[in-house]
């Protein structure tokens, strides 16, 4: 029994499942909170949302690395292990119809919904990959992919979600994700031994529920915000801002050119030192 038997997966099952639990909270869950809060700023109008998007995109060329390291890879890990976990259990809610058993089942149902929704959502807005070939041939206007344009954050989002069917899809998807996170937070507390007694678990349950309701409001707020957007106005603002930005960039480039022209090497050597 002590023999090191079984696959890598079997031998590291504890670690893998704890990481699964952890990634659900950080970074995936945390990202979702940030993401939904950011998106809910659409409620504050195109300017506010664009500012937030710009802040994120100020990472520039580092953004894909950050995205993959802190969002996509943990998400993929969470999803792959999650699918394996789902396949390891068998629901018996119809025999033992307790609330927590229902939640066990719902955690798995929402996991599937979230998985497909997020796959679609990332394709829909982000396009999955940003290589030239991919964007040209796979994720484009015709396939309904890569519709979110960071520089036209509000308007492109509003266009992408124009169809009521898509809005509904997003409502369902966001609700599932929020339930999955809030309920997952509660089970995480048990898994890691943060709340142990029934009373503590009950109190934690209230907190997690409140968190879930709050986050759901934020999430649905984003959809409302996007829906309320006047595309033309948003576009106008965005274009204006782009122009201002372009002008500013131009000025900056000129300034830089001037600086480098009269540049003296000591600065460079100093940095080398």
């Amino acid at each position: 029994m002590e023999a090191q038997s079984g696959s890598f997966f079997a031998r590291n099952e504890f670690l893998i499942r704890r990481l699964h639990s952890l990634t659900g909270l950080v970074p995936v869950g945390a990202f979702m909170c940030v993401h939904l809060i950011t998106n809910s700023s659409t409620l504050g109008g195109a300017e506010m949302f664009q500012k937030n998007v710009d802040l994120i995109h100020s990472l520039g060329p580092a953004l894909p690395a950050v995205e993959w390291a802190f969002i996509f890879l943990p998400l993929i890990f969470h999803a792959v292990v999650g699918v394996w976990i789902i396949r390891s259990g068998e629901s018996n809610y119809f025999t033992y119809n307790y609330v927590s058993n229902f939640r066990w089942w719902m955690q798995r149902v929402t996991a599937w919904i979230a998985l497909f929704f997020i796959l679609y959502h990332v394709f829909h807005m982000h396009g999955w990959f940003h290589t030239e070939w991919w964007l040209k041939n796979v994720a484009n206007e015709n396939t309904g992919g890569h519709l979110f344009k960071p520089e036209h954050a509000t308007s492109s989002a509003a266009i992408a979600l124009a169809s009521p069917f898509k809005k509904l899809l997003y409502v369902v998807g966001v609700t599932a994700c929020v339930f999955h996170l809030a309920n997952g937070l509660w089970t995480l507390g048990i898994t890691w031994g943060i709340w142990t007694s029934p009373a503590a678990q009950r109190r934690a349950n209230y907190l997690c529920a409140a968190f879930g309701v709050g986050l759901l409001a934020v999430g649905l707020g984003s959809i409302v915000g996007v829906s309320k957007t006047n595309v033309a106005e948003a576009e106008a603002f965005e274009n204006a801002q782009l122009e201002t930005k372009a002008a500013a960039a131009k000025r900056a480039a000129e300034l830089l050119k001037k600086e480098s022209a009269k540049a003296v090497t000591p600065t460079a050597t100093a940095t080398k030192k």
Binding site: E13, F14, R17, R18, I85, S88, G89, N92, Y96, Y98, S100, N101, R103, W104, W105, Q107, T187, I190, T191, W192, G193, I194, W195, T196, S197, P198, Q201
Partner: peptide, 29 residues
Amino acid sequence: IQVCGNAQNCVAVCPKHIPLTTSIARAGR
């Protein structure tokens, strides 16, 4: 213990009313 999915049926059906989910959470910690 990592396989536990926190459905908490165990404690609901235990004929001896053993606080199994408390044990599980304590074991989790």
